[in-house]
Computed example of a mutant assay.
Amino acid sequence: MGVKHGREYNDILQDLIQALGKIPDRYIFFEMEEEDWARLGEKDRLEVDEALAEDLFYALGSEKMISVGSGVVIHDQELHRLNILIGDDELDFVSLI
């Protein structure tokens, strides 16, 4: 189902890809090893990041918070945004409206 949103899906997806890129070990979400991630070219990494963003967008429709490597993505329904954090530090957020 995905999260409720007022912005264009593709715009949200692109912003989410950018924000997730700030989590250095995001590949762990797909149970990849660091060596496997390091061997991927830029195009392949972008494809993994796109898949991650799409998976999170839909999963956050039913889950409030999802771990991504050392980070976490939280759906804030009141502020209509996705918060990307590592520990207590907010790395970025993606507006849904």
Rank of each mutant, 00 (worst) to 15 (best):
F30L: 03
I66W: 01
I74H: 07
F93R: 10
P24Q: 08
G71Q: 00
L20E: 05
V94D: 04
I12L: 04
D11T: 12
H80W: 06
R45D: 01
V48T: 01
N10F: 13
L82G: 04
I23E: 04
D88Y: 11
G21K: 02
A53R: 00
D49Q: 04
R45A: 06
I97Q: 00
D49I: 04
A53D: 08
G41R: 00
V94Q: 07
D36Q: 14
S70F: 05
E35W: 02
D76W: 02
G71E: 02
E34V: 10
E8I: 15
I28C: 11
D55G: 00
L56M: 08
P24T: 05
K4R: 13
D36F: 04
G87Q: 13
L40Y: 07
I74M: 03
I84K: 05
V48Y: 09
D92F: 02
K4Q: 15
E54T: 10
L16A: 02
G87R: 08
L82C: 09
D55T: 07
N10E: 14
S95P: 01
Y58C: 06
L46I: 05
I17Q: 01
G21S: 04
E63T: 10
Q77T: 13
L52W: 00
E33H: 13
I23M: 06
K4S: 15
L91N: 04
L16Q: 07
D89K: 15
K43E: 08
I23A: 09
R26Y: 12
E8L: 15
V73A: 07
S67M: 11
R7W: 14
L16K: 09
L96N: 00
V72N: 00
W37N: 02
D15T: 03
L79M: 08
L20V: 12
R26V: 08
A59N: 05
L85V: 13
I12D: 01
V48W: 01
W37T: 09
F93D: 08
V73E: 02
R45S: 06
E47I: 09
K43M: 06
E8P: 12
